[in-house]
């Protein structure tokens, strides 16, 4: 399971690499993101904002990547009691704390498998994600005009692919719709990258007040 997840995730590293160089990053800069940031959503967000706003949008690119990384903190919270005493391996476990590792680890039925799943998936995803980022950026840099190859639409499709599995209830659908409308309408009036951050307020308001909440089933926790 770990190897399969590693390869599948790595494959979309190809699109990340290609889109990163299309956004104006050097090949080694794209690689730096895959090694150091190592969080797909945040990486796509960073290059997405840079692609539309250039150097002026770098602060907004940092903020978008940071805000999208917040869920990794919650995965860490979930994994900490399962992984046991980590000692010096804590900083490494933290870096590997992403959607895929948490997904595989928490799908196991016993503790040894959970730990094995976490580490193996982490290592496989890291290796394939980085190898295929390199492949993608080399591929991307051999392409001239990115829009002629539909790479801007590919970036949008990549965001849709990341968003899709999260749209299973009314609350996230309302937030997604509101955020999209806010971001597009504010684009002509705010500086690049900012509309995305303002759109994030939709999550804070709907989540904070728990609007459009799902009806609870009897006996269901949260």
């Amino acid at each position: 399971m770990s190897l399969g997840v590693g390869i599948a995730t790595g494959l979309y590293g190809i699109s990340f690499g290609a889109l990163a160089v299309a956004a104006g990053l050097e090949i080694w800069q794209a690689q730096l993101l895959s090694i150091l940031m190592f969080s797909g959503g945040s990486q796509f967000a960073f290059i997405g904002v840079v692609a539309t706003g250039g150097v002026a949008s770098l602060p907004a690119a940092i903020a978008s990547a940071w805000l999208l990384g917040i869920r990794n903190g919650f995965y860490a919270l979930q994994m900490k009691p399962l992984l046991g005493s980590l000692g010096w391996r804590t900083p490494i476990a933290a870096q590997l704390n992403i959607d895929e590792t948490t997904g595989v680890a928490t799908a196991q039925s016993n503790l040894p498998d959970t730990r094995k799943g976490f580490w193996l998936t982490g290592i496989y995803v890291f290796v394939f994600w980085n190898l295929l980022t390199l492949f993608g950026s080399l591929l991307g840099s051999s392409i001239g005009d990115p829009s002629a190859f539909g790479l801007d639409a590919a970036a949008a499709a990549a965001f849709l692919g990341l968003l899709w599995p999260r749209l299973k209830a009314l609350q996230p659908i309302v937030v997604a719709t509101a955020a999209a409308v806010i971001a597009v309408l504010l684009t002509p009036v705010l500086s690049p990258g900012l509309p995305i951050l303002v759109a994030a307020l939709a999550a804070v308001i709907v989540g904070g007040l728990n609007l459009f909440k799902p009806k609870m089933q009897a006996g269901e926790v949260q």
Binding site: A51, V175, A179, A183, I196, A199
Partner: peptide, 28 residues
């Protein structure tokens, strides 16, 4: 806190998707 965090991911991804698909520089 958990709810806002998970909705934050949704909002940001959707905003990125929309701007990537429907804007060019500062135009719709």
């Amino acid at each position: 806190v958990a709810r806002i965090a998970s909705l934050l991911t949704v909002a940001l991804l959707s905003a990125l998707l929309a701007t990537q698909a429907m804007t060019s520089q500062s135009e719709i």
